[in-house]
Amino acid sequence: MSEITRDEVAHLARLSRLALDDDELGRLAGELDVILGAVAKIGEVSDAEGVTPMTHAVPLENVMRPDVVMPSLPRDDVLAAAPAAEDGRFRVPRILDEEQ
């Protein structure tokens, strides 16, 4: 039913922060087409109308915790895992994108 273009895959790759090369884009376009073709059959389910979507297997509601402060992690442990840190903070390359 669908015909996924390389441009569409490039857009999806940009949204999901994946620097894919041309080969990968082309290959994924083809694979996505095949997979979407295979899953498209869920559109055929005729008795889905009026059915409540099920997002969860557990029928729980109102799971909350009291507003109580718990210990945080030691900062050294936190920053030890960082690819780069400076002045107690996580260091990242310059942000060329606009502020959100």
């Binding site: 915790r65 109580v68 402060v69 718990m70 210990p71 945080s72 992690l73 900062r75 936190v78 920053l79 002045d87 107690g88 903070r89 996580f90």
Partner: peptide
């Protein structure tokens, strides 16, 4: 969504958890 302290002005990244 976690028990970390919200007090303003703490040293950076001292109020963090998994």
């Amino acid at each position: 969504f976690c028990g970390c302290d919200t007090t303003f002005g703490a040293a950076p990244n001292t109020h963090t958890c998994p």
